[in-house]
């Protein structure tokens, strides 16, 4: 899966976890908690959803590396290799 696909997957799962977000208004550099108002429960649900979808288990120590959609796409692309 290339980075663009992973970006799209990330946004899709993000909106699933936070259904009141509008995918069209999420910016690549939005911080999940500060800008998109996710709480720790939402972040955990997102990580669980990504694990189900992609088989990538993101450890807690790596959460900072998925703090924005852009960073997350880079991170997931690296983990996919």
């Amino acid at each position: 899966m290339n980075r663009d696909t992973l970006y799209a997957v990330f946004i899709e799962e993000l909106v699933n976890v936070a259904p009141d977000l509008d995918a069209g208004t999420i910016n690549r550099d939005d911080q999940l908690q500060d800008d998109l108002e996710l709480d720790s429960m939402d972040v955990l649900n997102l990580v669980a959803a990504l694990h189900d979808r992609l088989g990538i288990d993101i450890p807690e120590d790596d959460y900072l590396q998925i703090e924005t959609p852009a960073k997350a796409a880079d991170y997931l692309a690296a983990r996919c290799k």
Binding site: S40, M41, L44, V47, A48, L50, H51, D52, D57, I58, P59, E60
Partner: peptide
């Protein structure tokens, strides 16, 4: 919590909350 969560899938992780 870090030790517990390191060894389990995300769905089974606990939060401090």
């Amino acid at each position: 919590l870090a030790r517990m969560n390191a060894n389990v899938a995300p769905a089974d992780r606990l939060l401090m909350g």
